[in-house]
Write a protein that binds this DNA or RNA. Structure first.
Lengths: 339, 339
DNA sequence: TTGTATGCGTTATCAA
DNA sequence: TTGATAACGCATACAA
């Protein structure tokens, strides 16, 4: 039994050919006669040869893998982005490896550094808004694209979903369903939430007679939503909104739970509710939730495209830019009725 | 501006020392005089040198990264495993890279192959039960551990949660809460579910007077649970279970939703419900769900430990084995009352 | 179509 | 403590 795995030169010797020939049949770029090809392939099989990607990328000076540093894998949105990125990468013959930075900027740096050291072909980073400052400085020479947050435009490309449009779509939908008193719930501490609210405001402004109220929440989790719901339940009917735009699905689920448990208000009859994200975590609410679906796959796809573009164009000829992806309205039961 | 990133020899020239010296300050294994160290470090900073991990692992003949091929990243359990694995790997100075096989055995193979080609130090594979046959054959030379499914014991190590124990814990808890008519819901097509049922049966057998009924479901999703709940609601009170052991959290959520919507049965007063997995997707049910928490982090940790063991012992001296991790009962409101 | 030889950027061995 | 140099396994340019 051999100690280390066989190399190309072992294969060459076994097949009675040169290393170059073995390399040629492996890569298929240069023509090789069927006869020798067969001999080489037989030797490869016999020896159980597996090509060494490390030596490969060292010699070739390029790698065929992309690295994706993800801030929150528990969020299905980022998984969708990863899927989109993976597909687009596959089209270009590249593989996508993931690293979980788990909300930690330190781990984010560590993994970016790792990918840089490993000289991957390119790096994707899903980061927090505001934490993308010097990401590019960690990656000199390796193209890097910031995903889901606007990066420093002069140094990196970035891809973001159009949150303003999403808010607009949500509010417009509710108004078209006949709703007139809208309540927006969320915390405007978060930049994406702020953008969503802007879109809601634009939609409301387009429809005279429609009023909008904003309720700040501490966070955008289920418990925050429950508080919003409890508040609505306690109100005088004349003060009550007939529709809620939640800044996130979990928030919407909380609102819904609260209304349902109170048994006094029905969804959507009395209050329509729309969420945001189309998060898997909210797919199973009692009343199926209308929502704005994040363009996760598109974000991932576009990010890889930008990476490939930079890869082909070369670092200096490349102009960094921001690409925006459009979210989509998904109508389910929670807004389906007419008021 | 330089075309490619500076190498050790560039640094050596700039610092007026030899490559070996630079390598020594980089790795810190050999003593270097403070003076030259300072000169080298200055040159490194000045040139923006980043060490080349590819050449590094080629020359050293070893890599410091582990690869984890994950079957379903959308399931928070696997993310927990990844976290546990990452921590343990970190302790050994290794990095963990993830690949999403997304339920596809083909992608699983592809990524295992990729990791083998890249000569990672070791590979973790979270696989489907039954699909682990020839995984080791794809990875000659690279230690591979099967996670969450029993691998072919003679070829690989594997780590699994103790599903039988989990079932036992769940049923015992319910019996201790005074429940006497247990209903187990799930599909015994799935091996893990079958094991959980075995544990439930053992617990029931230990308590004369307690009866158990098994209701097969098509799958273990929320909708399957709703059907189970609907069935319970329609039953004659004397035929009705006072406790449900669901084979999975989502199933339990479905049961709960159905009972709650019916408004005729209360949880846990009339029917206690316990789930399985402690899946994040079920954290926000209306009545907080008691459950059996999967030992995700432990599974990941043990998997890496087995890998390290095989790495140190060497392939031939190493005996492959199966490690089992114990799940834990988590009591929340859905079983907290007394019947 | 196939063989030969050089270099990729490091580590590691052996001298100095 | 430091310097010189041979691998590591492959791609690739060039020669045959």
């Amino acid at each position: 039994m051999r100690r280390s795995s066989p190399s190309i030169s072992d294969v060459a010797r076994a097949a009675g050919v040169s290393m170059g020939t073995v390399s040629n049949v492996l890569n298929g770029t240069v023509r090789v006669s069927p006869a020798t090809r067969a001999r080489v392939e037989a030797a490869i099989r016999e020896l159980g040869f597996v090509r060494n990607g490390v030596a490969r990328s060292l010699a070739a000076g390029r790698s065929s893998t992309l690295g994706f540093v993800i801030i929150d894998l528990a969020n299905s949105y980022f998984l969708d982005i990863a899927r989109g990125a993976e597909k687009e990468a596959g089209r270009a013959g590249l593989n996508l490896l993931l690293a979980n930075s788990d909300m930690s900027e330190e781990k984010q740096r560590t993994y970016v550094d790792l990918f840089v050291e490993d000289r991957v072909a390119g790096i994707l980073v899903a980061a927090n808004h505001g934490s993308t400052h010097d990401l590019h400085r960690s990656a000199p020479g390796v193209p890097l694209v910031v995903v889901d947050a606007p990066g420093d435009h002069s140094d990196v490309c970035s891809v973001v979903p159009d949150n303003e449009l999403g808010g607009y779509l949500a509010a417009t939908h509710l108004v078209e369903q006949g709703r007139r008193r809208l309540l927006f719930a969320g915390t405007t501490e978060l930049v994406p939430v702020r953008d969503r609210l802007l879109g809601v405001e634009r939609a409301v402004a387009e429809h005279p007679g429609v009023v909008l109220e904003v309720e700040q929440t501490g966070n955008v989790q289920v418990e925050d939503g429950r508080r919003v719901g409890d508040d609505i339940v306690l109100r005088d009917p004349r003060e009550r909104p007939d529709a809620v735009v939640a800044a996130a699905d979990l928030l919407a689920v909380g609102v819904q739970q609260s209304l349902l448990l109170s048994s006094s208000l029905r969804v959507p009859d009395d209050v329509a509710i729309i969420g945001y994200d189309d998060n898997r975590a909210a797919w199973d609410s009692a009343v199926p939730l209308s929502t704005i679906r994040q363009p996760g796959e598109a974000v991932g796809r576009e990010a890889v495209r930008l990476l490939l573009e930079e890869l082909e164009t070369g670092p200096e000829a490349h102009r960094h830019r921001l690409v925006t992806c459009e979210p989509r309205l998904v109508v389910r039961a929670s807004t389906a009725g007419t008021s």
